[in-house]
């Protein structure tokens, strides 16, 4: 046995393997860049068009940058564009959407967490059947339920109210949020739950103090999912929104449809962009969390 006292000279390959750009990698990047362009180009056109005055748009140079960028079209879109006889822009729709989305998200996520928790940890006779029925609910096409629900809403007097829309979204969101939470809770060892019971914690205490604090990843995912889904909803808003409670998407549609004469592309683009701003912001601010939450597997204890 000898010990090495000076650096050894090696024959052949040694040390870290040299990195090479493989053809696979080039192809991967090419595809990713192409996909990014495909989605970003319309966004680019939307933004620059919304910043141009109409004279400039008429020249037809779609991709050219604006010569005199101005936010005039944005301001018209926000507060002056007409939908039918009312010329208040998309602003009222924005506030409706906020009032619809926030409570709907809170209710559907909390209720989903609670039902998912019950079905994972407090199994009762027939709980699997209840779960199956609930999940089946996620696959029922909304269209089937629209007319009966409209009748029910009309007779209850909540048709065309923000509250009515909150109820619709909460109920329709529940199957999916329940499924997401239940699948997450499967990864929590039941021993943790048993330990809490031995420690004397009951149904709600375990939910609030043990289970919910561990559920940050899935809460983030479901909140993002529900928030963007409800904000982007058009069908429910159109059907149940009536005249007063229309969400931003339905209002945008009205504004674009009720333009007559020359189309003001800059205003339409601005209004569309304003409508898309909230989900866009949610993704940009929390995309990382979203991916992390979706891929979060087991919970380390």
């Amino acid at each position: 046995m000898t010990t090495q006292s000076r650096p050894q000279q090696f024959e052949g390959p040694h040390g870290p393997r040299p990195r090479r750009v493989s053809p696979m990698r080039v192809v991967t990047y090419a595809i990713l860049i192409a996909a990014a362009l495909f989605f970003l180009l319309p966004v680019y056109v939307m933004i620059i068009t919304s910043l141009k005055p109409m004279e400039e748009i008429r020249t037809g140079a779609m991709l050219a940058l604006p010569q005199n960028p101005s936010f005039e079209a944005w301001s018209i879109a926000w507060s002056q564009a007409c939908s039918g006889v009312r010329c208040e822009g998309v602003a009222p729709g924005f506030w409706n959407s906020v009032q619809i989305t926030i409570p709907s998200v809170i209710v559907s996520v909390l209720a989903g967490a609670l039902t998912g928790y019950t079905m994972s940890f407090w199994k009762f006779r027939g709980s699997n059947l209840v779960f199956a029925i609930l999940i089946f609910g996620a696959f029922v096409p909304y269209q089937i339920l629209l007319y009966p629900l409209v009748r029910v809403y009309a007779s209850l007097g909540i048709f065309g109210t923000v509250g009515g829309l909150v109820i619709v979204h909460s109920i329709f969101g529940l199957p999916l949020t329940t499924l997401m939470f239940r699948n997450f809770f499967v990864s929590i060892p039941t021993e943790l739950f048993k330990a809490a019971r031995v420690d004397g914690a009951g149904f709600l205490r375990i939910f609030w103090q043990i289970v919910l604090p561990m559920s940050a990843p899935i809460i983030v995912v479901t909140v993002i999912w529900q928030a963007t889904g409800i904000w982007n909803d058009f069908l429910m808003g159109l059907v149940f929104g009536g005249r007063e409670a229309k969400p931003m998407t339905a209002l945008l549609n009205n504004i674009i449809l009720s333009e007559f004469g020359e189309r003001r592309y800059n205003v339409e683009m601005a209004a569309t962009f304003l409508t898309a701003l909230v989900p866009l912001a949610i993704y940009l601010l929390s995309g990382r969390w979203f991916v992390r939450g979706i891929t979060a597997g087991s919970v380390k204890g």
């Binding site: 021993e191 943790l192 048993k194 809490a196 031995v198 914690a201 043990i210 604090p213 561990m214």
Partner: peptide, 30 residues
């Protein structure tokens, strides 16, 4: 009787510590 009312304590194979709580709170929880 409920588990907590039986005068028992239990130690689990997977430790089953509350991951969001400090060691102190884990001990103090019951």
């Amino acid at each position: 009787a409920e588990p907590s009312a039986r005068g028992i304590a239990m130690v689990f194979q997977s430790y089953a510590l509350y991951p969001r709580m400090s060691v102190y709170r884990n001990l103090a929880y019951s």
